[in-house]
């Protein structure tokens, strides 16, 4: 599938991406009649209201709350960064944060290699089998994370799962993916299963947007299939790769649904402070510790924002997607 974007990219005499708006755009701003400027604002206004109400206001409020502490005696008290100091010295928060970071470091490369490999395979050949495979591999994206985690929880389970039978055939004890040692792998599998298809579709669409004559030109120059993949295909889909990497990073650092659901099945393995988000949830809703919960939320949001921002800055020359 091609989209109008790649059909007429470059056909535009003036591209008005914000980064490129230099002198010309600034002078245009002044030339635009006031009435039309107002219309522009009217188009943006409804979203701007929602943005202020449900993003800016909660963030500022979280920041405000995180600077206070509620005590039974003495009421609300300004404590500046005490909650943050507490969070960054709290073993629960540190362990949760280090878990999601370790998890991202393993998950993201694995997921990208798998989705890229599938996309490259699907790009080589088009027939009914390939088309059906593409759709079926994408299907888990439509499944709520809660249900996906539940399904895999069943498959891992001693009571319902097939692992005992399957490993019984070769006379081995079944691995318990809900145990302390293997929960990392168990969660890894669930997240890859859930998202690889979505990322694959994005990469596949980007691969299909490449002009096939480039491959012929490379082949005439003596390039092998592997060289075409590494030197032509991958560089050309770099913006798509950056896009999915950013998605994966944002998604993984706020890990919540899957461990929250498996918590019941994997009793004793997944505690209420397994990830920072679960810890914030526990602090706010089980312990009514809203100030500390807000501080954890805000710290997590800030960490994700900074990580992604640094990443975008580092990769900006490679053709970042937000440009």
């Amino acid at each position: 599938m091609t989209t109008p974007i790649d059909e007429d990219a470059g056909a535009h005499a003036h591209d008005d991406a914000p980064r490129q708006t230099s002198v010309r755009a600034r002078t245009r701003t002044h030339r635009e009649p006031l009435r039309r400027q107002l219309t522009g604002w009217l188009f943006v206004a409804p979203f701007a209201l929602v943005f202020l109400a449900f993003l800016v206001a909660p963030l500022l409020y979280a920041l405000y709350l995180s600077l206070y502490r509620d005590a039974l005696i003495g009421g609300r008290r300004f404590v500046l960064f005490d909650n943050y100091v507490k969070a960054f010295t709290d073993p629960s928060f540190i362990e949760g944060a280090s878990f999601v970071i370790r998890f991202s470091l393993v998950l993201i490369p694995l997921q990208m290699v798998i989705s890229l490999a599938i996309a490259l395979m699907l790009d080589t050949l088009t027939n009914r089998f390939m088309r059906t495979s593409r759709l079926l591999i994408f299907l888990p994206y439509a499944i709520p994370a809660v249900i996906g985690a539940l399904m895999w929880g069943f498959l891992y389970s001693r009571n319902f799962g097939p692992l005992t039978d399957v490993f019984g055939l070769i006379g081995q004890p079944a691995p318990d993916f809900l145990s302390r040692d293997l929960i990392f792998a168990g969660l890894l599998n669930i997240v890859v299963w859930q998202w690889a298809g979505y990322y694959m579709i994005i990469l596949y669409a980007a691969l299909q947007g490449i002009d096939p004559t480039l491959y012929e030109a490379a082949r005439i120059d003596g390039a092998s299939t592997m060289q075409i993949i590494l030197r032509v295909k991958i560089p050309l889909i770099m913006p798509a790769l950056v896009l999915i990497l950013v998605f994966a990073l944002i998604g993984t650092l706020q890990f919540f649904n899957e461990p929250q659901i498996l918590r019941y099945l994997a009793a004793g393995t997944i505690g209420p402070d397994f990830t920072p988000n679960m810890y914030a949830y526990q602090q706010a809703f089980s312990l009514a510790n809203f100030n500390y919960g807000s501080a954890i939320s805000f710290a997590l949001g800030a960490v994700v924002f900074v990580c992604v921002y640094i990443f975008m800055f580092v990769t900006r020359k490679r053709g970042s997607f937000l440009s």
Binding site: F51, P58, Y61, A62, A284, G301, V304, M312
Partner: peptide, 22 residues
């Protein structure tokens, strides 16, 4: 627009608890 692009990078779950309190 720059603020909007920044907002893409804010994890939605970080907003849940503050929004709940509001």
């Amino acid at each position: 627009f720059a603020v909007l692009l920044g907002a893409v990078m804010v994890p939605p779950t970080a907003l849940v608890i503050p929004t709940f309190i509001l």
